[in-house]
Design a protein around this nucleic acid. Structure first.
Lengths: 143, 143
DNA sequence: GCAAGAGATCGACGGATGTCGAAGCAAAGG
DNA sequence: CCTTTGCTTCGACATCCGTCGATCTCTTGC
């Protein structure tokens, strides 16, 4: 079954916030209602739009930090570029560190919301969480 | 005068690679010659395109790591969103840490290539390096 | 039930990193 | 020249973090 984000309390709250639409009029009430056609999008506005609050920075930094390690970055790109959109740990374990270390880094990526995992039989498969990655990309948008 | 990236040997090589044009008409060629029409492209391909090599991961992780600290992220967004595209240190020093610490983090951001600095009179102004930020954004592209 | 294989967790260790106060340096005025 | 102001550098310290070997858990197959 799907394991998903390891720590359930890690970022559900902000992710909900991030799901809010943000267009012209931010009259967007968080609850009910069939959201207006367009953007549920950005969550996190471009970093150029306005200064981040301390809390926003805290949450967001966690995601960037997850990609701030060479081994994790390789693991992530291995998963992201793997055929079928997912990869078994055994498929990506050859990054020059021990197996416990690989496991450790995959856990970090999961906690940051960048990956999800699912056990199927003997193997555990990881896949990327596109919405979170997209949100990060948004923040680096030119304007 | 312009200080630019602190350590000149930090990432010049790969940055050259990253400078290659990529769109139809980003004809803004810094130097001589109209290279073949289209894409010499992204420098850093999307992370989903292919697994990163160890060296690529090393270089790239340095940039993401720079944004992997809450204080640095706030400083970066303060500079990025500041009127005029630049900010004096005194304009952005109110992030809850001591002034030496602010200076330390700005240095890190500079070393990562995300910011440049220039002294004008008594003040030092920081501004973002758009091409580097864009390159990071590229890597988080959906495909 | 038991052995084997795939991953996760634990505990330990060493090096990296964020933080501060103190001191240094540079420009601008007196 | 000396002071003030803005910022960087230095040294010290505590914490975080990446790494590993050993161990544990879970699943499969005999």
């Amino acid at each position: 079954m799907t394991v998903g984000v390891a720590d359930p309390g890690a970022w559900p709250a902000w992710f909900d916030m991030c799901q809010h639409r943000q267009m012209s009029n931010v009259n967007a009430l968080p609850l009910l209602e069939p959201e207006a056609a367009e953007a549920v999008v950005p969550c996190c506005p471009p970093l150029t739009e306005r200064p981040l609050s301390a809390e926003e920075a805290e949450r967001t930094a966690r995601m960037f930090k997850a990609l701030g390690d060479p081994v994790r970055l390789r693991l992530f790109s291995l998963v992201a570029s793997h055929a079928g959109g997912e990869a078994c740990v055994c498929d990506i374990s050859d990054v020059g560190v021990s197996q416990p270390t690989v496991s450790h880094h995959l856990k970090k990526l999961k906690e940051a919301g960048l990956l999800t995992s699912e056990r199927r039989g003997t193997w555990v498969y990881y896949r990327v969480e596109p919405s979170v990655v997209a949100a990060m990309g948004q923040m680096l948008t030119a304007r």
